[in-house]
Nucleic acid binder design. Structure first.
Lengths: 340, 340
DNA sequence: CTGAAAGCGCTAACAT
DNA sequence: ATGTTAGCGCTTTCAG
């Protein structure tokens, strides 16, 4: 940098107070006289002084940095989370360090802890499906690292998780289809190793159950949350002797695959087959017909997670331990219409 | 953290050398005896010692952190860049701090500089279209901040930019359409304030020119890189008395909009109209028909940018000042077929 | 409410 | 090739 940056000392001497006082002002301590504070703030502005985060971190043992750990193929989801977290970070003077990882490596926990320690992160936010890894959470907890997981079930203490009620949302979608008159509804799952897959399937079954229906085993296809898997499962469901009038695919990728499978077979969506997805990806709006889907308030979830994390960091345990659960909502579009 | 982390001092005493020597080992200084180095490294491993990045930063005036500044709606693009940058960061021991911003604010430069200074970032990577802001680049340069811009033209010194040859790519696409027998080709631009829009349009014209054609003004629609704009421009081009047999939309969003416009008008893609896009977004593969498009090697560009940035930081000027230009490549899919 | 001084853990002159 | 030591800029006891 050309003109060396001002230090706390410059601010102190120019405002005629001690370093300690400037530090108090920076850290919003209430123990400063109003006149003093104002004066100091003025000098800070004049000098365009910015506290050195590293020095603050070294001395105060906090970095004002949060980390984000994930292994998720959905770029839009990641982007939404980043923005949600950053909205809160900005208010509170934090920065965000990103850390995509490989959830299938056996050194994941160690590696993640290394990440946190190296940068002295004040806390981390963990996205699904990595968030479902209890070994990782345990490792972090053990090391005294603050963390919050984004998940679809309460797999941790309230201060460590923000929940999306996927189960309820899936049930809503099932009811939506049901209310459109569909009685033979196919369902395509994600990988059953993921909580979200289980929850969504359970929600689907909950709803059928409510109407006195038993989820027909032959109408449930076990998929992978991918397009290819959607094509395959869609084909299988559609070639049934008694094919479904609607298919609820548990994410948009699967739904797009399902639509493709229908197209191949000359089954018209939505005229002959209603199709619903989950996630509200960009494709949902661009596909033809546009896709009825479920949108999780991802950005809001992320914001809650960041707030919770910062509350933990600040030791505001009452705030941190509030249970946060958000509810996704249904977005009806063209791909679902009344059954014939 | 429970068990306080080891410090350089612990490592020093346990390996029976001075702090300075440990520091040398950490920083890969060649001035250490082989035996000594080995011993120290062993202790480091045993203690699971990780140098404190903040202390390193404070003392050594580098943070080992890179920043990424952007205001881009394409989450996939951002994700690809982040991953490309991080691949290089990992090798070199850097972390990545993300910073989405609002490019339309007049305090952008100041705000961005604040970001860099606050966290003492060693450098930043700037994504388009923010990267086209010369005021920002000037401000950073002035402050002695290392930066690299991702762009589609050489709008800065070689050490400060990695270029994607959009012009060439657009020309390839035009030739592709031409070689399929299309002679009346519509073109939809992005916002002409963006270099990428200009470059792609120029590339398109270059190609026509090469075949002795003049780009017909009435076949050029000025759009916005959005789906809605694609629908609108598509409609306009298609209602021409002498409609095009192919439309080259300068990004995938526009192309999807164009396909929608064709659908509205009962024009079949690709039978009656070939449509091509640019970017290779996820939609390109999910649309029906799948979309012929252009893919920029985004991750590679990002990696080059990171390498270049780190070279600058390290003062390896020869490495930093190599001109980096990558060439996007055409991906033919179902949406473009021979003209009838 | 404010100030003086002791580090936080590391790098980099400066010795040896 | 290795050790000694003075900071980097800030927070935080501990006194006033």
């Amino acid at each position: 940098m050309n003109n060396k940056r001002a230090t706390i000392e410059d601010v102190a001497s120019l405002s005629g107070v001690s370093i300690r006082t400037v530090s108090r002002v920076i850290n919003h301590s209430p123990m400063v006289g109003d006149a003093t504070r104002k004066k100091v703030l003025q000098v800070i502005e004049d000098l365009e002084y910015q506290p050195n985060a590293q020095a603050r971190g070294l001395a105060g043992r906090r970095s004002f940095m949060l980390g984000m750990i994930y292994d998720n193929p959905d770029a839009l989801y990641i982007d939404r989370v980043q923005r949600g977290v950053l909205d809160v970070c900005r208010e509170r003077g934090y920065e965000l360090v990103v850390h995509p990882c490989d959830m299938h490596t056996d050194t994941l926990s160690k590696e993640a802890l290394g990440f946190v320690n190296r940068s002295r992160l004040d806390g981390v936010i963990i996205l699904p499906p990595v968030s479902e890894n209890n070994d990782l959470a345990g490792t972090l907890d053990n090391a005294g690292v603050n963390y919050v997981r984004l998940a679809s079930v309460a797999l941790d203490k309230p201060e460590n998780v923000v929940i999306s009620n996927d189960r309820y949302a899936a049930a809503s979608m099932a009811e939506h289809l049901f209310s459109l008159g569909h009685r033979r509804i196919g369902y395509i799952t994600g990988p059953m190793s993921m909580k979200s897959s289980q929850e969504r399937l359970d929600g689907f079954c909950d709803a059928l159950d409510k109407y006195g229906f038993k989820p027909p085993e032959d109408m449930i296809a076990y998929g992978e949350y991918t397009y290819e898997s959607g094509v395959e499962c869609g084909r299988r469901l559609l070639k049934d002797a008694h094919p479904p009038t609607a298919i609820f695919a548990s994410n948009d990728e699967l739904a797009m695959g399902t639509i493709q499978a229908a197209r191949e077979k000359g089954v018209s969506v939505p005229d002959d087959l209603s199709v619903a997805g989950f996630d509200d990806t960009k494709m949902a709006l661009r596909s033809y017909p546009t896709l009825t889907t479920v949108r999780r308030p991802v950005k809001e979830m992320a914001g809650l997670a960041a707030s919770k994390l910062i509350a933990s960091i600040d030791g505001r345990d009452e705030d941190a331990s509030i249970m946060n659960m958000v509810t996704p909502f249904l977005i009806p579009r063209q791909s679902t219409i009344p059954a014939k």
